[in-house]
């Protein structure tokens, strides 16, 4: 029985999948704190879908996958920012219009230029069959995102909480917004290979939401979210060995399950705790 549980560790590809999922999970978890506090869940989903036409074009032009994906995500973000400032349409609808348009373009290109870009891989990820150069790409993305957050994470947090104060302190909220978009697009590119386009949003929202229920300090929230992301990434990849595939499904389902437990039981902000507090206050 115990031996059986150790089987995944005997396979090189499983070890790699667990390692890379934990890394991407940690990075996405860290970013998810900003996404949750900014109310940008839709943006996380949008960027992961907006990447698709870039992947196809990159393949057609013989460019690296990550470059095309990232460029496409950033282009979508630019179009959104431009539309948001010039139309009466709410930001959420602008995001929706743009990302569905990009994804539609991706589908269209893929169907008229048959390529070896497999829709299945983009939509569901394929971390178990990941190629070495992709691992290098993902590791680079992870290091860059972590470095950027280490340097500018505090400014980024201030831009969400009190943009005016950031201006007074000599920073620029607009630049912070762009930074967050760049980091999101980069993480979406990495997450795409780990869990696929549809489930990137899970990794970019759930750990942050879970941590937000557990603490009132941003520093601790970031640490918790990164830990949750890494832990669920590792465990999810491990569990997917026994579940016969769908690594992305395992990781995100695990994160959602953890969220539900915390939602009910969290010491201060859980449902049970607030109910108790409301009773005490009314008495």
């Amino acid at each position: 029985m115990f031996d059986e549980l150790l089987i995944p560790f005997q396979y090189d590809y499983m070890l790699r999948a667990m390692g890379i999922s934990a890394l991407v999970g940690a990075v996405a978890g860290l970013l998810s704190c900003y996404v949750v506090l900014k109310g940008w869940s839709l943006m996380g989903d949008a960027l992961s879908h907006a990447i698709v036409p870039g992947v196809v074009v990159a393949w057609l032009a013989g460019l690296p996958f990550a470059a095309g994906a990232f460029a496409s995500g950033m282009l979508a973000a630019l179009v959104m920012a431009w539309l948001r400032d010039r139309t009466p349409i709410r930001e959420d609808a602008v995001i929706g219009v743009v990302f569905t348009g990009f994804f539609g373009l991706g589908l269209f290109l893929m169907s008229i230029y048959p390529s070896n870009v497999r829709l299945r891989t983009i939509v569901f990820g394929n971390v178990l069959g990941i190629a070495d150069e992709d691992i290098v790409q993902m590791a680079i993305i992870a290091v860059v995102v972590l470095g950027a957050l280490a340097l500018r994470g505090r400014d980024l947090m201030l831009s969400l909480f009190d943009p005016t104060q950031l201006v007074v302190a000599g920073g620029s909220p607009a630049r912070m917004r762009i930074l967050l978009l760049v980091l999101l697009a980069a993480t979406a590119v990495a997450g795409l290979q780990a869990v696929g386009a549809v489930l990137v949003i899970g990794m970019l929202v759930t750990p942050g939401a879970t941590a937000y229920l557990l603490t009132d300090s941003f520093g601790r929230m970031a640490g918790l979210a990164a830990g949750i992301g890494a832990g669920t990434g590792l465990l999810g990849a491990y569990a997917s060995y026994f579940l016969d595939g769908s690594t992305g499904g395992s990781i995100v389902a695990l994160q959602a399950a953890l969220f539900v437990v915390v939602l009910v039981l969290a010491p201060k902000h859980g449902i049970l705790a607030s109910r108790r507090a409301a009773k005490v206050a009314a008495a």
Partner: peptide, 10 residues
């Protein structure tokens, strides 16, 4: 009247 919100704020 007394009104308390679900988050315990009175």
């Amino acid at each position: 009247i007394s009104v308390a919100y679900p988050n315990g704020h009175l």
